[in-house]
Design a protein around this nucleic acid. Structure first.
Lengths: 146, 146
DNA sequence: TTAATTGCAAACCCTTTGCTTCATC
DNA sequence: GATGAAGCAAAGGGTTTGCAATTAA
């Protein structure tokens, strides 16, 4: 029931979006109420509880619009299907190599030194630091199976 | 003609690899001689110059083996097809949002503070800092079209 | 009323895989 | 020779798209 992110997402009137359909509301609600970084499939499954006929295409189309408006971030790890993050606060991610889950961690990253900036072959907009390892859940399971 | 990376890749005897076929040699040669972070398709196109009948499946199978042996890194940015990097030296990447190209930049990243480490929900193996923006080539082109 | 949005299904792209043939060891 | 690896083509998974029907404004 984390409500911190609910506000910004729900309040904004994204420019790509023209009508607030039931489907869109439900998708936004799911995104705003989770810190799980769900995949499109996972969002679909959850929204289906409320709107059993919603199609996966609608999920993707809405995600596109929310991405275009910067209300949602796409975090993808290799070939395993994109995950979506509606947390507007600056934060970093911890990726589990075993299960593919993604966890929020406090914002991390020092501003690029002029040294680095000078060596970027272009205009630098942003930077991101990601963390990798094996999550507690997987560690626990591994120990259990041993 | 950058030869720096050619050595480690060419010298190692990866455990996944049992026979050094002409195809594998050619793929390794392409990877070792570029800093372009080619996609599988791009590797295919280049190797084809030498071995016109090589199939895309062979490219992928070899990349898998090289990945498994840690001789190549996969760097993927969203949905645009994985890119492969055989540069063994520590370094970071600059991703162009416009064209999708990936450029090497000097290694970047400060060691995680105990503070951060403590907040990671699992065992931290590694971290990575990526840079995003628009590359010089695209900036130049945009100016040209204006 | 009317145009944005949906549902459906087919199409797409990138990657993987099964199977037969080839060629390295 | 044996067997790992290649070529080919079909299958897979995730995502996008065309089109007719729906529905918010």
């Amino acid at each position: 029931m984390e409500k911190l992110n609910a506000k910004p997402l729900a309040d904004l009137k994204p420019s790509s979006v023209q009508r607030m359909t039931r489907q869109r509301q439900a998708i936004i609600r799911v995104l705003a109420s989770t810190k799980e970084h769900p995949t499109a499939e996972e969002i679909h499954a959850q929204v289906r509880d409320e709107l059993p006929d919603i199609s996966i295409g609608t999920i993707y189309r809405n995600l596109q619009m929310l991405l275009a408006d910067g209300l949602v971030q796409e975090i993808s790890l290799g070939r395993s299907g994109a995950r979506f993050d509606a947390n507007q606060q600056p934060h970093s991610h911890f990726f589990c190599r075993k299960c593919g889950r993604v966890y929020d961690v406090p914002a991390y990253g020092t501003p690029p030194t002029p040294e680095i900036t000078r060596q970027i072959p272009g205009r630098l907009d942003s930077q991101r630091t990601d963390f990798f390892g094996v999550c507690s859940a997987c560690l626990k399971q591994a120990k259990h199976n041993a």
